Computed example of a mutant assay.
Amino acid sequence: MPEPTIRPAVLSDDAALADLDRRAWSPVHAVTARPGPDEPFFTKRNLPEYILVAELDGRVAGYLRLVPATPLPSNAHVRQIQGLVVDETARGRGVARALLRESAELARRQAAVRLTLRVLGHNTSARRLYESEGFAVEGVLRGEFLLDGEYVDDVLMARAL
């Protein structure tokens, strides 16, 4: 079975990433509204330079968004994962793990020493994956989101690089 290829995003990935975002959207991992049918993936806030793309079998199979945690100089040593999506047809093939590992390498190249993320409490498969990659729970915001009529915890996780 081929390994996923991880690369930086380019503007021409917009349609494929927007399509993936629409198909993969779920209240299990999303706190925002489902993307609209004509909504672009790249925006002023969501730039290609923040996105790692996973390719498998010659097509986009997933992405990870890696950004500075805040714009503060005192926090410049921290990078935050603000989105990890894998196409349903590519799950179980190492795509998410490859994206996580490449994001850690990229963060190190950017002189970061800490990598953080937030995950919904009910997303147990993602939490297990993050734990297996060295992330530990550092805090829980109880009932932080109301999704489909249920209060859901926001779990803060991090790892050293």
Rank of each mutant, 00 (worst) to 15 (best):
M157Q: 02
D153T: 04
P35T: 12
V152P: 06
E138C: 06
E3V: 02
E138Q: 05
D148G: 13
P40G: 11
R101Q: 15
L99S: 05
V155R: 00
E88R: 15
Y151D: 02
V119G: 04
T32E: 14
L20P: 05
Y130Q: 06
A15Q: 12
G134P: 12
L66E: 14
D153M: 05
R45V: 10
R159K: 15
R91I: 12
Q110N: 13
E105Y: 04
T43H: 00
R97Y: 01
T89A: 15
L52N: 04
R91M: 09
G143H: 09
A136C: 10
R79I: 10
E138K: 10
L146S: 10
I81A: 05
E88K: 09
R59C: 02
D21K: 02
A112I: 00
R128N: 09
L64P: 04
R97T: 15
A69C: 04
V31D: 01
A160C: 01
A9W: 03
A111Y: 09
A98Q: 10
V95W: 07
A15K: 01
H29Y: 08
E144M: 02
L84P: 12
R79N: 12
L115C: 10
A15T: 14
D14P: 03
A111I: 00
A136V: 14
L117M: 11
K44R: 14
V119Q: 00
R128W: 02
E133M: 05
A33V: 05
V78D: 07
P35R: 04
R101E: 15
H77S: 05
L129A: 02
L117R: 01
A30W: 05
R65D: 10
F135I: 03
P48R: 08
E49C: 03
F135R: 05
L100H: 13
V60I: 14
F145H: 15
G36T: 02
D13H: 15
A126T: 08
E55N: 01
H77L: 04
V95Q: 10
P4S: 06
A126F: 13
S125Y: 00
P40V: 10
D38I: 01
A76E: 10
P48F: 08
A16L: 06
L146E: 13
V119W: 14
A18I: 09
Y151H: 11
A107W: 02
R128Q: 13
P71Y: 13
